[in-house]
Design a binder for these strands. Structure first.
Lengths: 250, 250
DNA sequence: AGAAAAATGTGATAATTATCACAAAAAGCG
DNA sequence: CGCTTTTTGTGATAATTATCACATTTTTCT
């Protein structure tokens, strides 16, 4: 059992950040209110093997959690907070792939294959994470077929969703793409029509592959047309029907 | 053991095409010269379960093999020929995801999850296929962890490749995208600088999300600059270095 | 609180690519 | 082998989006 306290620093190939405050780690994984639904198929013995081999950490907004290209030594489970998954492009730009919501694993794509992280992850809000040694995780997969199928199904679904978002995007003009981002945050991430978007205009542009200025102009246009209200990063969607129409035809 | 002869028609949710000639199906899977490398980890008993539950078919160029949205009842193994994987877009267009080369499975993405085909497949050349019942295939995965890992690794690699091609594409202008297509066919599909491209200009445009006319114009430009030679669909790459430079910076 | 840095909004202009129109060439078919 | 259908090439024009420049606002940090 590992106790991590304020002002500790953790160094590792893909683990480097300050832990900000003492974390209660007495809770067994089996009793964790944030446990992943895939763990439902694990025996209490297996749950215990995770408990004995994980460590918990809290991470502040803005922290880089994983850098692409680094070897994968841990599977990271997101207990709370929001994370952006992205790839670095040759020239300073980045491409944001998705926003990851609580109760998801980061870096599962690299567990089969070359054990290298192919994406980078950065905290959009303060986070609570669990690090599980990749060897422990792989052992679980090999010993429990049901767990393996759960994990693979979730990898498959995630891949499919991302891929489809990308394909759709590539056939849309910029208005449709920005409409999609708004719909994505409203319907997938926050599940409400009023939310604080955790990205800058630059990052929103990077989600859909257009320029910062274009993204901003489209936001303004949507506002003057009464489709959304904007106060800084606080956004209210007033006319979802219209947004969906723009997503389809615009 | 199922014998399929000339002029038979096979009807099924995702299996509908004419079998063009009698197929020799005496060869055991274990002796098949085209078997997939993942089968190396299967026991002879397991290989035999495939042999008893597969059927072979030959398919002519242009045949639709699978339509997206249909339920997956078979995993299809491509013994020889080339297949295009694509999705249909709302308005008559399609988006080509990849060209599939021999010794690959089609439709693996749908084996975990909803058992629905998410992509469509069409024969670019005459094909030799093996249909393996999805229940037989799933049973193998559940009973042989090593096989499951082999298959998942190959799914993971394929996903990663496709996804990266897409991400890269979305940050390139049309010249770079067409350069990428030429490099893809030369280095991934045919492994030579002189090949017959199995796609129309329209389809090439659909691979990279630009218009047919633009694609054609770029081909002409590359020819007048001496980078490639074109006679109909026969293409010779004369200056790979220059193509790679265009792919990176153009 | 106050200075420095980062993010944003907007106009003017340039670059890129799509669309339309139509002629020419190639491929498929009875 | 002709006829039909599909594919291709190319010019002219329109639409879309990026880029540059700079003023303003917001956030961050001490």
């Amino acid at each position: 059992m590992i106790i991590i306290t304020k002002s500790d620093y953790l160094y590792s190939s893909d683990l480097y950040h300050m832990v900000t405050e003492e974390v209660k780690i007495n809770t067994k994984c089996s009793d964790c209110p944030d446990k992943s639904c895939a763990t439902a198929v694990l025996s209490s013995k297996e749950m215990d093997s995770i408990f004995r081999n994980r460590f918990i950490s809290e991470v502040r907004k803005g922290t880089n959690i994983v850098n692409e290209g680094s070897p994968t030594s841990y599977i990271i489970y997101l207990r709370s907070g929001l994370v952006k998954e992205f790839v670095q492009m040759p020239d300073t730009q980045e491409q944001i792939l998705q926003i990851i919501i609580p109760h998801s694993y980061l870096g599962l794509t690299s567990i089969f294959g070359d054990k290298v992280n192919h994406y980078s992850y950065k905290a959009l809000t303060d986070l609570r994470l669990c690090y599980i040694d990749i060897n422990v995780f792989t052992a679980l997969l090999k010993n429990n077929v049901d767990f393996a199928f759960e994990i693979m199904t979730s990898i498959g679904r995630e891949n499919l969703n991302n891929f489809h978002r990308f394909i759709n995007q590539s056939h849309k003009k910029s208005y449709g793409r920005i409409a999609d981002v708004l719909i994505y945050f409203s319907k997938v991430i926050f599940l409400t029509s009023k939310f604080q978007i955790p990205l800058t205009r630059q990052e929103i542009a990077e989600m859909v592959g257009i320029s910062r200025e274009s993204a901003g102009r489209i936001f303004s246009k949507f506002r003057t047309e009464g489709i959304i209200e904007i106060q800084g990063r606080n956004i209210t969607i007033n006319d979802m029907k219209k947004l969906e129409k723009i997503s389809r035809y615009g």
